[in-house]
Amino acid sequence: MRTEAIDPPGIEWRRVSPKYVTVRLVEWALGNLLTVGVLSVPLILVQLGWWRWPPLWLAISVPAAMLVLALWRLVLIPRQVRAIGYAERDDDLLIRRGIFFQRTMVVPYGRMQYVDVSVGPVERGLGLCTLKLHTASAGTNAQLPGLPAAEGARLREQLSARGEARLAGL
């Protein structure tokens, strides 16, 4: 993957598992198909002649717009997953994400208060996990989704050990 403008130079990004695309697809399906389905109800009712109010064009265009948006998001998912990256440096962890709205974040090991590893049902099926770092700041929304379980465990141990060594107060 090419280096973006806001990525620090000379960083070897490690990528999350490509299998994470599946997790995102399931989430996408649950969220978007349901919305489109619900928005299509008036269309069906109008077609059946039970409802009069929404004119046909409105009944069609609303779910159609939603569908287009949903498909757009669907197309983006693989690229978004590829855009997630992390790099362990000597004193801090770098995390990047995003294609349009990019974010590169640095979390010093000494600032980590605790490290969470969580596994959802779909993730468990694929052998993935999500790593979450907590600092004293609520703004630190440092999540690394889609890590292989072994890598997640390794990273957790590694981060905890490094955090312990460099622990600072607030």
Partner: peptide, 27 residues
Amino acid sequence: RTQSMALEQGPLARLFRVADLVLHTTA
């Protein structure tokens, strides 16, 4: 006192080659 930091850049900012730097601090 810096907890963590993030560089953020949206599409418009990328056009103008600028970026935001956010410092995370306690609530």
